[in-house]
Computed example of a mutant assay.
Amino acid sequence: MSTLTKLIEEYLQYCQARKGLDTKTIRAYRADLRDFGLYVESQNGDFLKKESIGNYVDFLHSEKAPRTVRRKIASIRAFYHYLTYMEEIAENPLYRLDLTFRLPQRLPRYIPNHVMNTFYQELYAQKEKANTPYQLKCAVRDIAVIELLFATGLRISELCGLKREAVNLYDGEIRIHGKGDKERILQLTEKATISALAEYESLFQAEIRRSEYFFLNKYGHPLSDQSVRDMINRLAGAASISMHITPHMFRHSFATYLVNQDVDIRCIQEMLGHSSIRTTEIYTHVDKAKQRNVLEAKNPRKLLDMENVR
C-alpha cells in the first residue's frame, strides 16, 4: 500500500469516526481521492508537490464538467487540510496554489404548472386503479411522498431519512435534519398533504412501529432515493410526460413558485435549509410568462406623454 493510499484510508476513517459524515459523503470522498491517487501514480508524481496537484487539476478541467471539477477540488482541499492539521505533512502544498474558477450560471430546472397537473392526475389515478391491498398501499405511499416533496421543498435525502418521531401530524409539522446535521422545522399547512400523510401512516402503522423511519419499502426498510426516482419515472411514463422529472425538481419547483409569488427570499432560504442566501438566490430568476406580463402591464414606456415627445 502506497503512502498516499494509506493516508487516504486514515482520513476516511477520521471522517466517519470523528466528523460523523454520512455514508454517501464518505463514498464521494473515497471516489474523488482514489481518482486523484491513481492519476498521481500514473504520472509518477509526488502528491506533496504543487506541480502534481496542479497537473491533476488541469487534467480535470480538460475531462470533467465544471461542477464535477469543483467537487473533486473540494475533496482534495479537505484531505490536505486534514494532513496539515494532523501534522502528517509539514506544509500544505495547496497554499499559494490558485484553484479558483468561475462556474457557468445554470438556472434550476423546475416542473411547469401544466406538467405538474398532469403528473398529479396520474398520481391519484394510480390509487383509483389499485386492484389489490398491496397496490393500494404502494399508491398511498407514492401520494404521500410526492405531496410532501412538493409542499415542503425537502431534499430527497431528507425525505428518505425522515424519522418516525419527526413527523407530527397533530401539530402539523415535521422536524428535518438537513446538511451538516442542521435542524429545521417545517409547517404542514396543505390539507391534501396532511391527509395524504395521515392515510399513509394509517396503512403502514405496523411497519412504521417496527422501524425508526417514516417512509418504508415493502421489506420494512427505509425508502431509498433510487426507489423514489423509479416511482417518478414510472408515473411520468404512465402520464405520457416527455420531460425527465427528478426528485430534486420538486424542490426547485417549490422554491420557484414561491419566488414567482413574491415570497421573501430569506423566508424561502429558511424553508429550504440553505446556509447561504446566495444559494437561494438562484431561484430569483423570473420565468418568461411572468416577465411578459410585467413588461406588458408595467413597461416604463407607457409613462411617456406622447403628445410632448418630438
Rank of each mutant, 00 (worst) to 15 (best):
Q43V: 08
R251H: 05
K6G: 04
Y14C: 07
T284R: 03
L21M: 11
D171R: 01
I146V: 06
S242P: 00
S253L: 03
G220F: 06
Q121L: 15
A125Q: 14
A297P: 00
Q105P: 10
C15R: 00
G54E: 14
F47G: 02
I268H: 00
I26H: 00
Q16A: 11
A239V: 11
M116R: 06
L188W: 02
D230W: 13
K129S: 15
R229G: 07
R109I: 14
Q43F: 03
I232G: 02
Y95F: 15
F47S: 04
F101A: 07
D287A: 05
Y56W: 07
A166W: 03
F215T: 03
A238N: 14
V228F: 04
V145S: 05
K64G: 14
H114Y: 13
H274C: 03
S202W: 11
K290S: 15
D22C: 09
K179W: 10
T152N: 09
S157I: 02
C267F: 09
D262H: 07
F254D: 07
I241N: 03
E10A: 12
E63S: 14
I89G: 00
Y170W: 08
K129G: 15
D305Y: 13
E41A: 13
D35H: 13
I185V: 12
Q261T: 13
Q16P: 06
E41T: 12
N131F: 09
